Amino acid sequence: MLPANAGSVTGGAQLARPGFFLEPTVVAGVRQGDGIVQEETFGPVLTVQPFVDGTEALRLANDVRFGLAAGVWPSDHDRAVRATRILHTGLVWVNTHGTTVSEMPHGGVEHPGYGSDLSLSGLLDHSQAKHVML
């Protein structure tokens, strides 16, 4: 359910199949504290919020309870590097979206759960090291 202050710009209809599936949806008019912003709302749902500058955009992006992934679309390299350093997420896409490689770990920060998938990091998450000194 959308907060009273928000509305669907496009999409939002439930698909006629079992489960809780929506057509691709864009929601505008949301506030930072709204559940659709603060919770793990998986796609295809996109929320749109205004911001004054890049610093505020990054602050808003970090002001959520979950930190699975983020995407930035800067036009210059320095802004891209700055954003990746500031964003508190397990994965940051720069000028792309949805791509991963098996050599790199994938996991979130904050409250999405514990652990990593993929790579040696993911394997070590399912292992227990023991230091034995004889």
Rank of each mutant, 00 (worst) to 15 (best):
G54Q: 13
V94C: 02
V92W: 11
T89M: 11
D78Q: 14
T55S: 14
T100R: 14
G107S: 12
D76R: 11
D63Y: 05
P50E: 10
F66E: 02
T41G: 03
T47V: 12
V94M: 10
L60Y: 14
T84Q: 10
V92Y: 13
A70W: 03
V101L: 08
G33P: 01
E56M: 12
H97C: 05
G43A: 10
A70R: 00
S102M: 09
S75R: 13
Q49P: 10
L87P: 08
V52S: 15
T96N: 15
F51G: 05
R82M: 05
N95R: 06
F51Q: 10
G29D: 03
H106F: 15
V48T: 07
V64W: 00
F51S: 02
A80H: 12
S102V: 15
L87M: 03
G107K: 03
L60K: 11
W93R: 00
A83W: 05
E39H: 14
T99G: 10
L68I: 12
R59F: 00
L68K: 03
A57M: 06
G54S: 02
P105K: 10
W93S: 05
F42P: 01
V52G: 07
E103G: 14
H88C: 07
A80Q: 12
L91I: 08
V94L: 04
T84Y: 08
V101H: 04
V72T: 09
H106D: 00
